[in-house]
Design a protein around this nucleic acid. Structure first.
Lengths: 197, 197
DNA sequence: CGGCGTTTTGAGAGAGCTCAACATCGGTGG
DNA sequence: CCACCGATGTTGAGCTCTCTCAAAACGCCG
């Protein structure tokens, strides 16, 4: 069971092979997630785009690596995929993969689903850390960790802990929170931050 | 199969429950990976430590979240786990979990193993992005992507692509590489960087 | 040859880091 | 009960490093 490449594992689910020229997009964020891919030649990276439009690389897949596995239980792709070099990729239908996995136990499938969620959450962390501007990074983090209904974030632990999750110094975090509060972006009370806009 | 918490899923593998006081370590990097955990109360985070000794948070687990799932196929833990608040965690034996998963198809288990590797690779990316100093960030990235035998890194795509994987501006990357070469840390040739020390 | 993207170097500004001082809070012991 | 202590929270000042804007060399492809 060690390190079997995705391509061998699900050869029965292979639907087609696609060629990409350099810079071509395999899919973009928001597209219906219908396939999982394996890179045969070249190099394909997963990217998100910052509000400013800068690309943020989340993963770089080389020959033998799979791509978008974590979309198995998502309706749409959360990232875009772009060929860094002229590339060929094998495409595998998600339904076929799910059908193959259905032979597994319920625990196995649920564990896969859990790991897929974990992958998406790690991508979110990597994305937060790619934001250079402290205010934007803090706001992005707060949005990510807020209750969507109340727009409130319950602080786990101290602000120092939060600072190093954000990879900011605690001094910078204090100042940034103070500035965000002064400009009406957030409101603070003991252990809770509320996002105002 | 949607979002079943780890605790319910593998209740048969539960070995014990452990209480942690604030600041207490559940395990540290390098410990034999014998268990996977689920947070019952409190808050536990996964951390690595930078060469300077600063903690780098990789994941924060709240009640209901699992911890160290990606260690299922590792011999040792790659991160440490620290309680941010007084916490209780349920402990699940890895062998028992593996035994339960063994009822799954080969493809299912291999897919899980693949996702675990993916999680570890994403943690590595998050770790690189937590390094503020450009030279250190570049060296860390190079070490991560080098062939351990030859200490060489094959560059996929352009240096600009590498720059945004590192979330550095391309100008800063050029300057940093030039400095690293001048100080004898690396040697560059077309499409390849060799780590010297 | 001409154009485009990458690579490279320069100069300046701004953001976050560092060092430092101090307030605040909770716990501990005399 | 209060003094003390350590950790967290907060603010100030200066400095360093990276970003930004700019310009030019280079290589590649039509």
């Amino acid at each position: 069971m060690k390190n079997i490449p995705f391509g061998e594992l699900f050869s029965d689910a292979k639907a087609s092979v696609r060629s990409l020229s350099q810079g071509e997009m395999l899919f973009t964020a928001g597209d219906p997630a219908t396939h999982i891919f394996a890179v045969l030649e070249g190099c394909v990276r997963m990217v998100r785009y910052s509000p400013a439009g800068d690309p943020v690389s989340m993963h770089t897949a080389r020959p033998g690596d799979s791509l978008a596995e974590a979309s198995l239980f998502s309706d749409t792709y959360h990232c875009a995929a772009e060929a860094l070099l002229p590339s060929t990729v094998a495409c595998y239908g998600k339904e076929k993969i799910l059908a193959i996995l259905n032979g597994s136990t319920e625990e196995g499938v649920a564990f896969i689903s859990l790991l897929c969620r974990h992958v998406r959450s790690l991508r979110a962390i990597a994305e937060v850390r790619s934001i250079r501007n402290a205010s934007d990074r803090v706001m992005h983090y707060l949005l990510l960790n807020s209750d969507p209904r109340t727009m409130k974030v319950e602080l786990a632990g101290s602000l120092k802990d939060m600072a190093n999750e954000l990879t900011l110094t605690h001094e910078t975090l204090y100042r940034t929170l103070a500035k965000l509060e002064k400009t009406g972006m957030i409101a603070r009370s003991a252990g809770v931050i509320k996002i105002l806009r």
